[in-house]
């Protein structure tokens, strides 16, 4: 029982780290990036290459996965995404689906269509027995890393100068521009960090979520649920949504496997009908 709760929390934390970048792009730039999962996939495959082929230690490869994905994200943002910000949601969806198709086919060719596994060092395998509750070491690491990241994100958004600029741009990009904030640069950095976090999440989650070329399509709906249910105006909304989703999904698959992912899809639809702006949203001035 507690083990399931623990696994669910780990799963939810993972979902949060992957999807918070999407929450920011959707909330900040009003941009629907269905290709977000592709960045997570990129992070996963970068880790696979670094650890399995180049023999780097697993923990050292995590920051590298973050950095590489952030760079890829920045390049794409500057060259391609920047042209699509002002287009309609439908066009953004088509554009990013195109990118997903490209990434799936390219990764399929380069890495092969079979599922990839990261070789996790021995000190992260197995379970610790904590007052009778079996806790997976790897999941403990995930919770620690993701928990730290969440705190850091919350701090960066709430208490730093950059965070203040970001929030200003969220509320009203035009006025922010008028105040001398370089909104484009804020966008670019935020996009890069969001992609990097997705990459890190993909790297950590390769073991739990499973990594194959169809990753961006398979988990697209999970990221979207987190963002749509959690709302896009804060970090806490998506955070709570991912925890609920993670625990619900793990528990659901364990206790009522015949329902599968049916439950979470239904929850998403109900929430969207009930509160189209998400559960934890404030009134948007736009």
């Amino acid at each position: 029982m507690l083990t399931i709760l623990f696994d669910g929390i780990a799963y939810g934390m993972l979902l949060f780290v992957v999807s918070c970048g999407l929450a920011v792009t959707l909330g900040l730039m009003n941009f629907v990036n269905l290709a977000h999962g592709a960045f997570a996939m990129a992070g996963g495959y970068i880790t696979v290459i670094l650890v399995n082929r180049l023999g780097l230690p697993f923990l050292a490869s995590l920051p590298l996965a973050f950095a590489f994905t952030a760079i890829i994200g920045a390049v794409f943002e500057r060259t391609l995404y920047v042209h699509v910000y002002t287009k309609s949601h439908l066009e953004q969806v088509l554009f990013t689906i195109g990118l997903v198709f490209m990434s799936v086919a390219a990764v399929d060719y380069v890495m092969g269509s079979q599922q990839q596994f990261v070789s996790i060092p021995s000190y992260l395998q197995g379970q610790i027995n904590f007052f009778g509750v079996g806790i997976g070491r790897y999941r403990l690491l995930i919770i620690l890393v993701c928990g730290l990241l969440t705190v850091a994100l919350q701090f960066a958004l709430a208490s730093t100068r950059f965070g203040a600029r970001l929030r200003a741009a969220v509320d009203d990009a035009r006025v922010a521009r008028g105040l001398g904030i370089n909104v484009n640069a804020v966008f670019a950095i935020t996009f890069a960090v969001g992609s990097g976090l997705a990459g890190l999440g993909g790297a950590l989650g390769a073991e739990i979520l499973g990594l194959d070329p169809h990753f961006p399509l398979k988990f697209l709906i999970y990221f979207l649920i987190v963002v749509t249910v959690g709302g896009t105006s804060s970090i806490t909304g998506p955070f709570i949504a991912s925890l609920v989703l993670g625990i619900g999904d793990v528990a659901g698959k364990y206790y009522v496997p015949q329902f599968g992912s049916f439950v979470i899809y239904t929850i998403m639809i109900v929430v969207l009908i009930w509160r189209p702006q998400g559960l934890f949203s404030r009134a948007v001035a736009k």
Binding site: L99, F101, A105
Partner: peptide, 17 residues
Amino acid sequence: PQYWQFWLGLILVMMIM
């Protein structure tokens, strides 16, 4: 045969841009 979706994706991206 296996990777035609790559080109399909490219068409989409270019058409929007």
